[in-house]
Design a protein around this nucleic acid. Structure first.
Lengths: 136, 136
DNA sequence: CTTGACCTTCCCATGATGGGAAACCTTATA
DNA sequence: TATAAGGTTTCCCATCATGGGAAGGTCAAG
């Protein structure tokens, strides 16, 4: 199958498939005489794996490791679990950071009248905050 | 004061100060005969404002709007509040997305032995997931 | 006057993705 | 068979916010 079909079947855009190939994440497929890339069902499988990994927030480098673990039938499941749990912690940390920002801002907004008057504690806070406090 | 001191006082790196100037986020300061940028206390104030805005997750474009609102003494506080609350919703959405990823992955990890054996439901899921499910 | 710590501009890199151009291939249809 | 439509190729550029670093100018202290 051509790259377009592989893209549709895997949920990875043709653009990204070529990119993944260029960075060595996936192996270059065979080519027709006209240089068209030719994919097999198994390649689509790999692309879906990558797609799933990305959807779960793994970077391409992490995805590279996961692919290696996937292909290495002799690796311990503990290796995978460790990588996964480390990622879970990162995700939860980032989620908490965003939530903290939202909470801070929501709190500031609480004290803002939100009417025609110009006074606004939100901007007042922005203007008054010192750089060390600013780590929010 | 020179850019270095403005950077220290504001918590914005000299590199970023120059960049903010180049994209018109802040107004170009006066220069010495030797082309050194010269900042006043008020400029540091503005930089802190930007820093605070960034720390709360606003993009530079959003920060630009906030700066405009800040300087416009006649704008209604409702304008600011609307912008802020829209951002709060965005932040909470992103936080929820990350949390969902973490939950999914944590769930998968629950079923992974995490020992020396190679079987791993995490990778099995990655390999089996179809593109439409993959939206995670 | 030298040294070191600043400052200047300019270019490059990141991470993951999309947009688009120019040229080429394939297939269907008139 | 000629042509049009649509898929493919490579290549370059853009995003967003930031940092790194080079090459050269400046300033203050010793």
């Amino acid at each position: 199958m051509n790259i377009g079909e592989a893209a549709t079947r895997s949920g990875v855009s043709a653009k990204m498939i070529r990119y993944y190939e260029s960075i060595g994440l996936i192996t270059p497929p065979a080519r027709t005489a006209a240089q068209y890339r030719v994919y097999a069902a198994d390649d689509v499988h790999t692309l879906r794996f990558v797609r799933r990994s990305r959807d779960l927030g793994f970077s391409l480098e992490e995805t590279r490791e996961l692919l290696a673990l996937w292909r290495d039938k002799s690796r311990a499941s503990a290796d995978v679990k460790n990588l996964a749990m480390a990622h879970v912690r990162e995700l939860e940390e980032k989620a908490a950071e965003l939530k903290a920002m939202a909470d801070t801002l929501r709190h500031l907004a609480t004290h803002c009248h939100g009417d025609h008057r110009p006074d606004c504690p939100i901007l007042a806070d922005f203007a008054a905050t010192t750089p060390t406090q600013g780590k929010a």
